[in-house]
Design a protein around this nucleic acid. Structure first.
Lengths: 268, 268
DNA sequence: GAATATCATTCGATATTGTCGAATGGTTCT
DNA sequence: AGAACCATTCGACAATATCGAATGATATTC
């Protein structure tokens, strides 16, 4: 691992947490001398990954990060495959539909179909939610042992009063999810908001994302028809991605298995 | 400038251009030995700035770039200030409204208010357009000498048959824009699409962005009332950002002036 | 089906390169 | 007016990234 690049990425991460930081503040958070950090931001600056406020000298993220994010979305097969199904689901259920992928200990929303009531809703693409506090995250963790260990090993932040932060309780939930194929979350991330989610798989049977229905607490639990619609959508998207079975059996290759590459799923 | 970080950012840029590249292809495009590039991507990988396809070994951008882009948007004062005005403009004119900022030789759309006809439109936030081929870009270049020189100095890519690629012609356009405060573009970036744009300024009088109306070629030129509405919106947003006059007089401090910092506009 | 070409990856020697402490000039607060 | 803070510059040192060659494994070709 290249030290300076790792540090540069850490600078970006810090800036993503607390927007608008002085050079000294960044240095403090990274436990590095200010002059070292200065060299780093000086390199990020011409690429516009960060910009400097011309009055205070503080640093913030720059427009270049936005273009990268846009390209990521445009080229994500999961997203284009999910889009029509999400639209269909939203119309059928009257609920908002979110699709997310794993990002270390969190999930990132890569697609958001607003609930079809004509109201103006904030687009949620790009938001980050702790995996253990969201149905989307739990649906993924249940079929991704590696990520599950990462999350359960680290500290479990509490998002709301109802966030499940007990490791044993979470392991139990994941086991249930593996059986039913569905993960749920009741006001664990955001008060008044519940979610039902299902994992999405690719041609290797690996979990690559999750799709979920977001409902206000008053409408919880969801109708059986709605649950079925979600399962159908998850299965259909997975099939379009090349998965041969759904829910997955849990023997999918782990993300770190890079030695054993193969284009097609292992023949039985 | 730190070499390895610069190279890492170049890797990301290359990946933003051609999604899905093998290690060797990246190395070739950057004119670097594969082993050097490997060290770089190896560092980007755990941060999920890039991910590796587990079947082909090819690299692509990762979900981490999306979260950065989202934070950038959320913290952009320009964006939050523009949003209500853009909505108002769209309702009043029946046209789509775009807001963009400068990114080296291009502009990046940071806000997009779809035309209010109820149709489903692709969100354009994050897309990149060559500055010289868009009204948004020309509105910015007219008041940003530094950026103008960068763009006019480099090669002027042609986007459509009507793209103006002649430096002298462009300089003439910029002069006109400085007088009228409005920039236009007729099918220069996308065939069948025209745009009228105005610059947005901050408290220092520096151009920080541009707002524009997008119209199909059939509806061009725009009504006088529509033109006035755009001017009013641009002036209003600029005032909310702290600008004391609009259009700007062109004596704004350049982005590179970092020695002379001041919180408020220079008193007269 | 054996042989070749391609590719990602590892390793280690080299000197290039990033690192860090101290100093500078500017600005803001007391 | 003085002190404190801050971004920035500089230069010496050695830690560190770089690159060529080697490896293993996989597709491709004959």
């Amino acid at each position: 691992m290249i030290q300076s690049i790792d540090r540069a990425l850490r600078v970006l991460t810090v800036l993503a947490g607390d927007h608008r930081l002085s050079l000294g503040e960044i240095a403090q958070r990274l436990d590095l001398p200010p002059s070292t950090v200065h060299g780093i931001v000086r390199t990020l600056l011409p690429h516009r990954m960060v910009v400097q406020e011309h009055d205070s000298g503080h640093y913030r993220l720059g427009p270049a990060v936005l273009t990268l994010g846009n390209v990521y979305l445009d080229t994500l097969e999961l997203r284009s495959r999910v889009a029509p199904w999400a639209e269909d689901l939203a119309r059928r259920t009257g609920l908002a539909v979110r699709t997310a992928v794993m990002l270390v200990e969190d999930v990132v929303v890569v697609h958001h179909e607003p609930r079809p009531d004509g109201s103006r809703q904030m687009p949620e693409v790009g938001i980050v939610i702790p995996a253990h506090a969201s149905a989307l995250g739990k649906a993924l963790l249940a079929f991704d042992d590696e990520a599950a260990e990462t999350v359960l090993g680290g500290p479990l932040r509490s998002m709301s009063g109802d966030t499940v932060t007990d490791v044993r309780a979470l392991r139990g939930q994941l086991k249930t999810i593996r059986q039913t194929g569905l993960a749920e979350e009741v006001e664990e991330a955001v008060l008044g908001e519940c979610e039902l989610a299902a994992v999405l798989c690719d041609r290797l049977g690996s979990p690559v994302g999750a799709i979920g229905l977001v409902a206000p607490a008053e409408e919880w639990p969801l109708d059986a028809a709605v649950v079925t619609a979600l399962r159908t959508a998850a299965r259909s998207v997975s099939r379009e991605l090349g998965a041969t079975s759904w829910p997955p059996h849990g023997d999918a290759p782990k993300a770190s298995d890079m030695g054993t590459r193969r284009k097609r799923p292992r023949p039985a």
